[in-house]
Design a protein around this nucleic acid. Structure first.
Lengths: 225, 225
DNA sequence: CCGCTTTTTGACGACTTGGTCAAATTCGCC
DNA sequence: GGCGAATTTGACCAAGTCGTCAAAAAGCGG
């Protein structure tokens, strides 16, 4: 597994050592995220993780500094999902309400297809002091942005007068709790849940309860699902 | 642990040994619940719990069979809160919407004053197989009842056509997530949160968005807070 | 103050787990 | 085939934790 510098043509399909390394590391983080989400950080031994990967615990330390680093990286990946959804909503939404519904829909769609990494956010307390600060800062930034969408919506008249902070807590709770009941192989596809939850949120906060603009925003969102 | 059978009058103020026992055991469960909620079950050592009580770990085993029993009892206590709220809503509500809003309000008021015990519900996975089954059954029973309130509300016209299951998941998520951000000594009293969350839920699911009946239900609920 | 019961202690054993390291193995390449 | 670097292993240590037990301490009635 080297990079195919001057090797024959098909050697290029074979992965370089760097690629191998990255791939294996990613697989490690993936499995760890699943395990952490399923049994909790402290109740998941690295021996367990190694076993699911078909290697020895010692081998893991070739790809990662320690257990805490694994958890940290998982958190970062999970938070990326939220940031992606946020960008999506900023780019495609007009009013505050538009953006909020796009964010909600996109976010749920993303996490339902990446439950492993997402669910690890429940293990926030397992982060050590230093990492916890980093993750908390990033989470707070996300929260602030989300709240701003709400207050913007109130300002532009698309959202009724609600407390932005409590409203965001309210909805983020509904989303984060999904890690407890959502199963990728369950009866409900993520897109259905996204639609339904966005609808509940819409009715909960929109200024004009029967306005057709809401429909437009929702269909636009699900169109790019 | 004896009772004060034929002792002199003021001896009755002093607690019997049974009472002592019950009180100390309760205190143990209380502190344990706090610790479990704060650091997680697996990351809380019994030495820690014992230290906060000013005793030795070994002393705990006089009041409790093992660590797992502590967790189980905490879960039971936490679930009692939900059942209490449910009874309250059944007794004081008329329509499905009435009952749902009463349940939501009462439940939040209860848990915000008992965060320690409530937050332990987040440690569901730490239960061993046997206890997990028991707790899960009771939780499912609560969920079913809650869902029935929703479908009843749809039937009696007080709730719009929503998916009861998803709606309950949605709202229970919002509530359960409170363990992550609510602080008893924070700026917002539990009653405020209860009111605000109930309002969001109301708007999200009620059939007639501007109906005055909702106000009546809410004020009735907060009156008995 | 005595004697009996309740309560607490300190020391300890068994076990799990995170992390380390030198040695062994694998792999691409000349 | 054989060389050198990348990768993996097995053995091992140190730390932490649950749970136990005989013995000590505390509490209380007579």
């Amino acid at each position: 597994m080297r990079r195919g510098r001057h090797s024959s043509a098909w050697k290029n399909v074979v992965l370089s050592r760097d690629q191998q390394f990255a791939l294996k590391r990613a697989a490690l983080l993936r499995q760890a995220a699943r395990a952490f989400s399923a049994h909790g950080y402290h109740d998941t031994s690295l021996d367990d993780v190694a076993k699911t990967l078909g290697v020895t615990k010692a081998a893991l330390y070739y790809y990662v500094k320690n257990k805490q680093e694994i958890l940290f990286e998982c958190h970062m990946q999970a938070q990326d999902l939220g940031e992606t959804a946020l960008q999506h909503s900023e780019q495609n939404g007009r009013s505050g309400r538009d953006k909020i519904l796009l964010l909600a829909t996109k976010y749920i769609e993303l996490i339902t297809s990446e439950m492993g990494s997402f669910a690890v956010l429940g293990e926030f307390d397992a982060l050590d002091a230093e990492n916890r600060t980093i993750i908390a800062r990033r989470r707070d930034k996300f929260d602030r942005h989300f709240r701003k969408l709400v207050s913007d919506g109130i300002a532009d008249g698309s959202i009724r007068a609600v407390d932005p902070k409590l409203t965001v807590f309210f909805f983020m709770g509904a989303i984060n709790w999904m890690t407890r009941w959502f199963r990728p192989d369950g009866p409900l596809p993520g897109t259905d849940i996204a639609r339904h939850f966005a609808d509940l949120l819409d009715k909960a906060i929109s200024a004009s309860p029967a306005e057709p603009a809401a429909k437009a925003a929702r269909s636009r969102a699900s169109a790019r699902a």
